[in-house]
Design a protein around this nucleic acid. Sequence first.
DNA 1: TGGTCAATGAACTAACCAGTACATCGGCAC
DNA 2: GTGCCGATGTACTGGTTAGTTCATTGACCA
Lengths: 224, 224
Amino acid sequence: MSAARPADRSAVDDKPVRAARVQDPEGVKRDILAVARKEFSRKGFSGARVDQIAAATRTSKRMIYYYFGDKERLYIAVLEDVYGGIRELEKTLELDGLDPIQALTTLVAFTFDYQNANVDFVRLIMNENIHDAAHLKRSRVIQKMNAGAIDGLARIITRGQKAGVFRKPLDPIGLHMTISALSFFNVSNRATFSAIFKTDMETPAALAVRRAQVIDTVLRYARP
Amino acid sequence: MSAARPADRSAVDDKPVRAARVQDPEGVKRDILAVARKEFSRKGFSGARVDQIAAATRTSKRMIYYYFGDKERLYIAVLEDVYGGIRELEKTLELDGLDPIQALTTLVAFTFDYQNANVDFVRLIMNENIHDAAHLKRSRVIQKMNAGAIDGLARIITRGQKAGVFRKPLDPIGLHMTISALSFFNVSNRATFSAIFKTDMETPAALAVRRAQVIDTVLRYARP
DNA sequence: TGGTCAATGAACTAACCAGTACATCGGCAC
DNA sequence: GTGCCGATGTACTGGTTAGTTCATTGACCA
């Protein structure tokens, strides 16, 4: 164990090998962020324990404070990281190339699937809402990312109205809210809902059914 | 100040005056419950502080432990108290007397209004979901109350289908989920949503618009 | 080859917070 | 009026937890 010397990397090739991560600050940060995301999304801000995050990391508590300052700033970093994910993906959908009905269907399906596949994301937002979005309000980054989502939807609506397949007054924000609500709730309230109604909402079958219902609901609302 | 003696109540009428609350255990319990509800719904289970609840009470921390045992049992008591409210009210709607469309409209409107008027209720459920419904699962009371809600909706659906105003396969649980999701989200995600989209979702005008949208969404989904 | 600085480890601390010990008070039954 | 018991106040404690102190390591550059 004690034989492996760290600095033997640039013995032969001393150019692009790029520090063979004997030390790897970026990696450490990403590691902390990933672990913190889990802990915060499972327990909420107050419920999460810095010591537990540290323990699940390949580094130490000392490093968390070194890179992120304090618990709250770590939490905000997690939040920004997570919000970045969905909007980034959303851009790859190329909705402007599809006909309006197809575009809307794709967007709803994507939102539903994404939220479902990213429970952490959903839970962090729930937690944020319990704290009146106190942290999110402070992050310009996040607000910018999300506001863009409305523009895409608005373009779909306009095209659909011109083609006569969508009703005439159709508020993009309202529609976005409906799409979000139906996708979000399916994940956010899964625990209480299935505890009460004894239905397993996580099986592929149940998800497929619900997904179809959600798409149908949105399309019926958008049509003339 | 020190002149007011407590026991001067039954001087004249010693029958039904009902202990002039020199000591009032039930009142104290209700007081604690009300304060705890606020604290838990604002901060979540872990974020809430027993000391703060005690301070906002007209009694002391000692009494909280005397009546409720510990923080968790106090939390469960709050949860049961709050869940009781909505189902109790729902019963007063007399939906079976209305024609199916009217009945469904009324139910959706009621749900939307109730959730909107009871932010505490919504937040407690969010918190419960963050903890995987750990507490709710333990409460038979709550599960019973809610399961009943589906029956009412199922009756409306059946009547509507017979009258030909609702589509033929129409899953009550799915429809209930849609109604809940749209009503719930409007309150639960208000903070993050309005932070991002800069819309105030709490003005009477905004609420009225959204309320109409939600009713419309549900009805369009239910119709053939 | 020694100086410098980012990166890191281990142990510590001060505050906080759920829960308790102990003593007391006051209404009610007899 | 005395004894009992539910109800209550005050002050404390033991464990937990965010954040810190101090010392060290190793890479890189001059």
